[in-house]
Amino acid sequence: MKCSLRHIILMLLLLLAGSLKAETLDVKSFIFGHTGDGYCFHVTEIKGKHVCVWLPVIAHSKETGWHVFSSKHVCELKEGETYQGFYIAPMTDPKYPGKLVEVNGQGEITRPFDLSFTRNAFGIFLVCGFMLAFFLPAAKKYKKDPMATPTKYQGMIEWLTYMVLDGVISPSIPKSKVPKFAPYLLTVFFFIFFCNLFGLIPFFPFGSNVTGNLSITLVLALCTYVAVNVFGNKHYWKEILWPDVPLFLKFPIPLMPIIELVSTLTKPFALMIRLFANILAGHIVIMVLMALIFIIGGMYGAGMGGATSIISIFMMVFMTALECLVAYIQAYVFTMLSSIFIGMSQQETE
């Protein structure tokens, strides 16, 4: 019984590999099409037809003003066609791969001001909605009766919250400042954590690789930069602008202040790159393992592809498990470093 089941699975895999043999896989567009942003949400493929959730495209052209339309129009365009002057550049485009571009009156290809509600935007709002739906009922219950015996749900929320509060935030930030910065740090932690986890779920409505996207980590790093520098106290700014170093290092050429100012920028920059690179790398590895089946299948025939799929799937399971770990670790690291930077900016002179 067990043996025959194994045979059936193997045969199915072989059939799958065989059925896809005809298509030659463009690995680069396959990987970056999935890990990158997109204008439509590809759900599945039934009998060769793509089933997609169309997202709104919002773009502002310098010549024709605002355009709002469903991404259906631009995603289903054939080569050389445009919709209202717009089309999506192929992944092979050197300048704007996979982005919405506009053909203006002179026939030049330009990038419009793009406010489209993309797949990542969808993913972001999904996580936002999830977070609100996850945490607000608990807050409401606490507000109603703080002394009531906590329910199991409240216990879970408490555990999650205090895991971050006691493990990450409290050790780094002066005690009196914790209530001021904890909401931001908690929000950032759970935002990154849920984004990472949702990114690992490979089907609609999840699967948008939000945190593996530089512009998203940039916003998060920017928030930390603001929290550190805008709320930084006098002592912190004195350490940057007039540090305790020999005078010639800060006057007449303010060498140390310049270095310190640059270092305030490098900290969030490192945060941004670290999160982005870790998450993107994990997704790429999983995608490559997936692509490997078709690459080998294409090179050596369906049989080899099927054989590879067994190894590949095992590796993918392993990588996905590892990515679950990474999802937590990266959220943890981002929050911990943010709270250390904030804590440093809140230090009082001893």
Binding site: F135, A139, K143, T161, L186
Partner: peptide
């Protein structure tokens, strides 16, 4: 959100 949870706890 957070102030309620933290405050109550």
């Amino acid at each position: 959100g957070w102030p309620m949870i933290m405050g109550a706890v």
